[in-house]
Computed example of a mutant assay.
Amino acid sequence: MRNVGITAFVFWTVMLGTTVPTPLYPLYERSFGIVPVEVTVLFAVYAVGVVVGLLTLGRLSDQIGRKPVLGIALLLSAAAASLFLVSDNLTMLLVARVISGFSAALATGAGTAAIGEQLPASRKWLGPVLALLANMGGLASGTMLAGILAQWAGHPLRLSWIVDLALIGVGLVGLVTVAETVRRTRPTFRFQRLSIPHEIRGEFIRASAAAGAGFAVLGVLTSVTGILLGTELGRDDPALTGFVVFLGFVFTAAGQLIDRRLPPSGSLPAACVSLVVAAGLIAWAVLGAALAPLLAAAVVVGLGTGTAVSAGLRAIATGVPAARRGEAFSAFFAILYTVLAVPAIGVGVVIEYANLHWAGGIFSLLVALLALTVLISLSRRRPVSG
């Protein structure tokens, strides 16, 4: 189990680094003179790095081994943290975010696979749970750690990255002692073909739409929460910003775990209802300049998103032949990360040319409409008895 613990720590550390900037965006905005739409672009290019990484390097750990790929992910994470540490302009921040996206793409595939392979046969069932905790735990920890350090320690744009680099150093030292689980072959690089699996076309589209709506909300929460708290609620509070996003990621993990106990037919309807409620809470938070509905929205959208993602992964795992399963998983996550980025930029544009009230209202309406559309399609496909 020592190998499993080290691998999970490495996975957690890489994901932690991807969300460290979240509570720092308002500080970058003031320090570098960037505007809200540039903040959302800064967030969104991370998703571009993840998608490109998944589509081009998703099979790399199958070929050269889990350990080398996790090492590359840590080094890329260190490169991104170093750029953030010395950055003094938007261009450097953008490059750092793209590199961070590549590190996450590599760690997600290699870390998930390695944890499953390192567990003894009697504990294989723990693999998905530990991978989920490392992934979402890292995302949640990064935003909370940076928020606390920025709020109550000195050098808010520097200290978080120093701590991140120290964690990466520990991960690199530990990784040296981990045993490889894959027999290495010559690496081949090709762009992963994406397609919707015809065996589960309807279920895939509905799960992608519901999970995509949730990812869109998480993306906007991640990129805009600091702006909302500062401009509308008068709370220039990195720790609070970090906590709001922390709730979203923690409850996304909880939603995936809870879904394991739901009947398969109930997962997507529950997710859609949660997302409609979350959209209403976000509109209330933005239009009413209220903190309580914002916190509640983070919890509810996390639960809905986690449930929808779990439903999509289950549909692929059980309904797609093994030979095309990797392709289907890649398509699913490529859709989710694309939807993570695009609405955030759209909200930034509306904030720039109108205001946050308009942006929040339009976005909430679109999320609710998408979730309701999926919910209606689910009700129509159920067989009518009698």
Results as ranks from 00 to 15, higher is better:
Pro128Asn: 09
Gly361Arg: 03
Pro293Thr: 01
Leu145Met: 15
Arg158Phe: 12
Pro23Ile: 00
Ala354Ser: 14
Ser385Lys: 02
Gly306Asp: 01
Gly138Met: 02
Val10Lys: 00
Leu94Arg: 08
Thr40Ala: 10
Leu94Gly: 05
Gly360Ser: 10
Leu106Val: 09
Gly280Phe: 01
Ser103Gly: 10
Thr305Ser: 02
Arg66Cys: 08
His155Pro: 05
Ile316His: 07
Ala359His: 10
Val50Glu: 03
Arg260Trp: 05
Leu366His: 06
Ile345Asp: 09
Ile148Lys: 02
Leu93Glu: 11
Phe189Thr: 10
Arg30Gln: 14
Asp259Val: 07
Ala166Cys: 11
Pro120His: 14
Val301Gln: 08
Gly348Phe: 06
Thr252Ser: 14
Pro264Arg: 13
Leu369Pro: 06
Phe9Trp: 08
Ile162Tyr: 15
Arg235Val: 04
Ala328Cys: 05
Val300Lys: 07
Leu172Tyr: 08
Val14Asp: 02
Gly111His: 00
Ile335Leu: 15
Leu165His: 10
His155Cys: 04
Thr252Val: 14
Ile34Lys: 02
Leu221Tyr: 00
Leu294Gln: 03
Thr338Gly: 15
Val98Cys: 10
Val129Arg: 04
Ser330Asp: 00
Met136Asp: 01
Ala210Val: 06
Ser87Lys: 09
Val14Lys: 02
Ile345Leu: 05
Val14Ser: 05
Val300Tyr: 09
Phe32Trp: 11
Phe11Val: 06
Gly326Arg: 02
